[in-house]
Design a protein around this nucleic acid. Structure first.
Lengths: 243, 243
DNA sequence: GCGCGGCTTTGTCTCAGGTCAAAAAAGGGA
DNA sequence: TCCCTTTTTTGACCTGAGACAAAGCCGCGC
């Protein structure tokens, strides 16, 4: 089923890959001991739902590995993705017992989970956690607002360029400032999933990729691996909310 | 200049109209005394900027009266509004010293302000405040995500209907569940500001209003006052993320 | 009452991106 | 290896909403 599960089951928080970025980032050793005892891991295969809008949320948790999407479906099938969940991102909302959005694993995903009721108690007692949650919520709010500009005002070409630059930025995290020059990235999403994220159709996404390729703005090695020979040139195509 | 300022200057927190909804909602009496001593009011005329993206943010605060927008401008003048700020909504982000978005007063606005550094200290020491801030940030995140669905996937008609229903809901807050039947609302925005909020042009907004009027879905009394004879019929036009 | 400036409405034309359809690649078992 | 499925690309055509332009409306100051 999931070959990684056995490895992860034995892991304790001190060796956790997201220990210093997730909701527990600022917890001290005592607090981690408590969380360590409360936590449990769950795995989801690529394509599986993690949570349905309207469902009762029994747990909250952090993405340890893999990628998931937050999305919402309209009755007639139109879909909008509201966000990507990457390792260290948090799923669920303390204080709400019904999910508002669908969450779907798009690669194999492992979560570090807590029962919602005990997590809520922990939040109430642990300022380190509630402060970190606030910080993360505000970061997500900023990201959501940036994406609103993309969805509301950018052209298809600008959307694609912005998306690619976002991937570049994320895969550069922690490294030196993103320089001039070339960069390689691997797309975490299919054309359709990208379309749902950017408010386009998959055909338009595909056409824009082809166009950027013909213009030499990107080079494609297979469908998922992309080389950007000139990062600054691509940045110039984003409609530059500069940042 | 601003006729309301003198009245408000003397107000203390206990008689504040947003005392039980704003960031201070769950503070106890002692905490309110501290906030009361720290706070100061500022007024802005309609049209005035409250904050520019990129500026140093010296203060944070709550909207006491009036309406403001959070927005971002692209270099070529395209604008996207990311949110409306109504009484009790919070402006500013503790922990960040540079504003990420423009905030503009669209009616005369009064804010209850705190110097950012002292507010941050207060947040760190006062779980009631950080918990309330978290709650408010998560509510805003939900609202932002709902709006992403509108921006990315809804038609112009659905956008207008959704927007009108949002106004209905806000002006019904606290009253009985929104029933069948008719409802009157006053639009807080010009056609252009609505367009910027919904990712449309002002002409398209105007045309959709005309169409809804001809169909009898809405009746207009002047440009700003609208009667919705059948709220459920309008709801059916939203593309219904039901909620 | 008149004229001015800021909104709003309406008309006409255009085009970016959607829709529908089909072919081409890219896996991934067995 | 070959077959079958899923994903991607490309083409042809269509349409919803944008762009541009011109009136209409309304409130305000003089």
């Amino acid at each position: 089923m999931d070959l990684q599960t056995p490895l992860i089951k034995d892991r304790n928080c001190s060796s956790c890959p997201i220990r210093h970025r997730a909701v527990c980032a600022t917890c001290d050793d005592d607090e981690i001991v408590t969380l360590d005892a409360m936590k449990y891991y769950r795995s989801f295969d690529a394509g599986q739902p993690i949570m349905w809008a309207g469902d009762r949320m029994a747990f909250v948790g952090s993405v340890v590995s893999g990628t998931a999407t937050i999305e919402r479906l309209m009755e007639d099938g139109r879909k909008q993705t509201m966000g990507l969940l990457l390792p260290s991102d948090f799923i669920g909302r303390p204080g709400r017992d019904t999910a508002t959005y669908d969450v779907t694993a798009i690669t194999d995903v492992t979560l570090c989970c807590f029962r919602r009721d005990s997590f809520e108690k922990m939040v109430a007692q642990t300022p380190h956690i509630s402060q970190r949650m606030l910080e993360m919520a505000l970061d997500e709010l900023d990201a959501a607002r940036d994406w609103m500009l993309l969805l509301g005002r950018k052209t298809a070409r600008e959307k694609i360029a912005t998306f690619l630059m976002m991937i570049v930025r994320r895969s550069t995290e922690g490294e030196a400032v993103l320089t001039t020059g070339s960069k390689q990235i691997t797309l975490p999403l299919t054309r359709e999933a990208m379309a749902d994220y950017m408010g386009l159709t998959l055909e338009t996404v595909s056409r824009q990729f082809s166009k950027l390729r013909k213009e030499g703005m990107i080079a494609m090695d297979g469908k998922r691996d992309i080389t950007i020979p000139d990062v600054e040139a691509l940045q110039a195509e984003t409609g530059s909310d500069l940042s």
